[in-house]
C-alpha cells in the first residue's frame, strides 16, 4: 500500500514540482503549438516534394512529438532533484526505488499521450482530414505503446543525467535522432540503411508504423507485431534505465557527486 501511495501520489507530486513545462505559459507554446507547427511544416514539405499523403505526415509527427515530453519529462523528474538539491534526501529515505522511479514516469506517459492525440486530432482538422472515433481509438493504443517506449529511453537519459550538468542538451539530441530514424517524415525505403537499422532498435519506428497502419483502416490484428516490438523495446530501455540509475546512483554516492555544486 505504501509503495502504491509513493507510486501514484509521490509520482504526481514530483512531476508537478520538477517538470516546469506543466505551467500553461510553457505548455501551450511547447506542447501544443510546436507539435502542430512540426506537423504542418512537414505536411507542406511532403506536398511540395510530392511524396506521401498528409495522413502520413500527421500521424508520423504527432506520434514522434510525444518523444519530447517523454524524454524531457522523465529526465526532469529525476535530474530535477539534483538541481533542487533534494536528491540526497530522496535517496536517504526508505522509499522503494522502483516505486519512486515508476511513479515519476506515469504522469510523463499521460502527458506524452495527450500531446500526441492532440497533435493527431488538431493536425487532421487543420489539414482537412477526417477524424474517425474508431480509428482514433486504435491509434491512441499505438501512441500509448510508443509513449511507453520513449519513456523507457527517457529513463536511460535520466540515468546519464546523474553525471551530466545539462540534461536538456541530451534530451534534445535524442529527440532529433528519433526524428531522423523513426521514419516520422521520411518513408522507410528512402531512409539510408544504417538510419533505418538504428530506427529499428530505437522507440517510435514500430509505434509509428502501427499508428499509420490503423489510420489507413487496418485492424489491431495487423499491427500486433509492431506493437509487441515497440513494447519490448520500451521494456528493455526501461529496465536498462532503472539498472543504470542504480549503478550511477551508487557511483555518485561514492564520488560525492549527487548534487550539482
Amino acid at each position: 500500500m505504501n509503495s502504491l501511495r509513493i507510486l501514484v501520489i509521490g509520482g504526481l507530486t514530483t512531476y508537478r514540482a520538477l517538470f516546469n513545462w506543466v505551467s500553461p505559459w510553457i505548455l501551450v507554446p511547447s506542447l501544443l503549438v510546436m507539435p502542430l507547427a512540426q506537423i504542418l511544416l512537414f505536411s507542406y514539405i511532403g506536398r511540395s516534394a510530392g511524396i506521401e499523403s498528409d495522413t502520413f505526415f500527421v500521424v508520423g509527427n504527432a506520434v514522434q512529438y510525444s518523444a519530447l515530453p517523454c524524454l524531457l519529462g522523465t529526465a526532469s523528474t529525476v535530474v530535477g532533484e539534483r538541481l533542487q538539491r533534494t536528491l540526497g534526501i530522496v535517496l536517504a529515505s526508505p522509499a522503494p526505488r522502483l516505486a519512486l522511479v515508476i511513479g515519476r514516469t506515469l504522469p510523463v506517459m499521460l502527458n506524452g499521450l495527450a500531446v500526441s492525440v492532440f497533435g493527431l486530432v488538431a493536425g487532421s482538422v487543420l489539414l482537412g482530414l477526417p477524424v474517425r472515433p474508431a480509428t482514433l481509438g486504435l491509434a491512441t493504443l499505438a501512441i500509448a505503446v510508443s509513449v511507453f517506449g520513449c519513456t523507457g529511453l527517457g529513463l536511460v537519459s535520466a540515468a546519464v543525467g546523474l553525471r551530466l550538468r545539462d540534461i536538456a542538451v541530451l534530451s534534445t539530441i535524442l529527440f532529433g535522432i528519433l526524428l531522423l530514424c523513426s521514419g516520422a517524415d521520411i518513408p522507410r525505403p528512402a531512409l539510408p540503411g544504417w538510419l533505418a537499422a538504428a530506427g529499428d532498435w530505437l522507440p517510435l519506428a514500430h509505434g509509428i508504423a502501427a499508428a499509420r497502419s490503423v489510420a489507413a483502416g487496418g485492424g489491431i490484428g495487423g499491427v500486433g507485431g509492431d506493437l509487441a516490438a515497440e513494447a519490448l523495446l520500451g521494456l528493455g530501455y526501461g529496465m536498462a534505465g532503472v539498472l543504470m540509475l542504480r549503478l550511477l546512483e551508487r557511483r555518485s554516492r561514492s564520488a560525492g557527486a549527487l548534487d550539482l555544486t
Binding site: F42, I45, G46, A49, G50, I51, F175, G176, I177, L179, L180, D185, I186, P187, A190, L191, P192
Partner: peptide, 14 residues
C-alpha cells in the same frame, strides 16, 4: 541540422 536533414531526405526521395 536535424530538421534540415529530415527535409533534405524527404526532397532527395523525389
Amino acid at each position: 541540422l536535424f530538421f534540415a536533414t529530415t527535409a533534405l531526405l524527404v526532397y532527395r526521395a523525389t
